[in-house]
Structures are given as structure tokens and as C-alpha cells.
Design a protein around this nucleic acid. Structure first.
Lengths: 151, 151
DNA sequence: AATCAATGGTTACACTTGCAACCATCTCGA
DNA sequence: TCGAGATGGTTGCAAGTGTAACCATTGATT
């Protein structure tokens, strides 16, 4: 039986290290410029690209805990970047959509993101990002296919 | 100029989503079984695989903030899984090493990790993990080569 | 030797987070 | 129509986190 264990090739560790690094590197770009947290940026991005959504949908889409979504949405609303519309058929649900100001902010940060990714793309060479993302999709699929591990 | 921005293919987002998912999935395995936080597991793993290290070295090795390392080390010490040895040449430095109990715990969790990765490996097919990790290494290299982005 | 900057490590504080508990509303079945 | 459970969303609380400030020690400069 193999006694050795190399942290350096343990996927959860490697994935987290890379994610923290890239996340920090990109968030530096918008945090100071837009005074926005990462959950807020995620919610904004989801709404900006998909359009009208509910809080639960945002959570599913971007894999965020519902309390995180709740707080991010409250912050965006506070800034008048988003407004809530009630659903007449089901009054528990709130449809969320960006205001004009919210859409403007979204476009600006999306620009930043696009530029960021282009720079990275150039540094990594053609097709590299797509290959990485395909790998990540496989991992997510593998993990979500066995959602609970006998709790 | 391209107006579209697809969050779904934005690397920082994708990387983070996958990392959070896998991290959650694995930490469920050891959190309840060993009552250990992620920084503690990382420090334990670093010490277990490398051997004697200082706190700063652990931080560099596993990309953890020094306060995180400090607290993780304190927790491991509290459990008697680690002991500090002073350096006579430089009395600021503390060399850290696992106790027998710490090594035992390390072996057990390393086993868990190895099993986890094998399961994943089987689900993903041969070579998949290696390819993903190679991609991640490229990303890290690209990001670390331009460490500061004009603050 | 005295001073000042750099380094290893810890800690106080404010902020973020997840869990659990909660409120409101809806659905289903008796 | 009444209740039990499910669902959308919010909040209190305890735990985790980074920033900045700190202490101790070392190294370089004078």
C-alpha cells in the first residue's frame, strides 16, 4: 500500500490555492474601484448576464449560500443598483432586476473582467483557458453526481 | 467591440466555484471525523509531508496568511499534535514538528485524502487530474510572474 | 555601542461567513 | 378548511478571517 501522500498533487488543495490566487488578483481590480465585495459582484454578474432572477436562482447559478445572496442583494438594493419586483402568483418570491445604474456598473465591471481574461489568455496561450474550464466542468459534474456522501 | 460577457466562462469565477465545491465535499469528510478546520489540516499536511518547518515556511508552502498559520499552529499545539523547538541561532524563529500523535493523525487524514482522490480519479478517467493540475500550475505561474498590478 | 529598518510571530478589532432558527407564504391531504 | 410540511427569504449568533498594530529579535549602518 502506498504510504506517500503529496499535498502538492492533491486536487482540492491545488484547486483552492489557484482559486484564491486568481480571485485575489482580480478582486484587487474592482474592490477599490467599485467598493464591492465578491458576493455582490457575483450577484451583479448573474443578474446582468441572465436578466431577471430570484434570489434562489442566483444562489443556484453561482453556487452561493442563500444568506450570502440575501446580503449581497440587500447591499445592491441599498445602492439602487437593483430593485425587487413582487410575484403576484407566489408572494414569497421576489424577482430581482438591475436598475439603469446597476446595468451601467455591470457593463463597466464586465469590461474589466473581459480585459482581465484576455490578458490571462495571452499569457497562457491559445485554448489553454478552455481546456482548464473543461476540466473544471468534469470535476463539478463528478461531484454533483453523487451529491450526498451518507451524512 | 464585443458586448457580451459570459460569467460562465470567466476563469476566476469558474475556478472559485469548482474549488468551493470540492473543498466543501472533502472537508465534510474530515471535519466531523477529526474536528479540524481547513487551515489546521493544511498545516498538518505540510508538516507531515515536509517534516520540520517554520510558520513562515508553512505559509509560503500552502499559501496561507501568517495569522491563519499562527492560529492553526496554536490549535494543533493545544491538541498536542505539534511541538515548537526554538532555534538557537535566531531566537525569533520557531521550528515546528509533529508529535507522535500528530503523525498518527496525519497518516489517517492522508489516507482519507488518498482515497478521496482515487475515487475522483476513477470518476474522471485516466490522466484527467494531472491535466487539470498542469493547467492550474500554468495559471499560478502566469499570475505570480506579474506579482503587482500597479496599485 | 546606538540606532533604524527588516523579519518572525502574535493579537485586537472589525468585517464576513455559515448554521440554525425564524417569519411568511404556499401546497397537499384529510 | 384546517393543519403539517415544504419553500423563499431574513436574521441572531458564534466562529473564521484580514488588516493593522504590536512585541521581540536580528542585521546593517554609523
Amino acid at each position: 500500500m502506498p504510504e506517500a501522500f503529496d499535498l502538492e498533487s492533491f486536487l482540492p488543495y491545488r484547486l483552492n490555492r489557484a482559486a484564491e490566487l486568481i480571485s485575489l488578483s482580480f478582486s484587487r481590480e474592482y474592490k477599490q474601484r467599485f467598493q464591492m465585495t465578491r458576493p455582490e459582484w457575483r450577484a451583479l454578474a448573474a443578474l446582468g448576464s441572465v436578466g431577471r432572477m430570484t434570489a434562489t436562482e442566483i444562489g443556484t447559478h453561482s453556487n452561493m449560500h442563500k444568506t450570502k445572496v440575501s446580503r449581497a442583494v440587500a447591499a445592491l438594493e441599498e445602492r439602487r443598483w437593483l430593485k425587487r419586483r413582487e410575484n403576484e402568483a407566489d408572494r414569497r418570491v421576489e424577482h430581482l432586476e438591475l436598475t439603469a445604474a446597476g446595468q451601467k456598473a455591470y457593463r463597466e465591471i464586465a469590461d474589466l473582467a473581459r480585459t482581465y481574461q484576455q490578458t490571462l489568455d495571452k499569457a497562457l496561450g491559445p485554448g489553454a483557458i478552455e481546456r482548464i474550464e473543461a476540466g473544471l466542468a468534469d470535476v463539478e459534474r463528478a461531484l454533483l453526481n453523487r451529491p450526498r456522501k451518507r451524512g
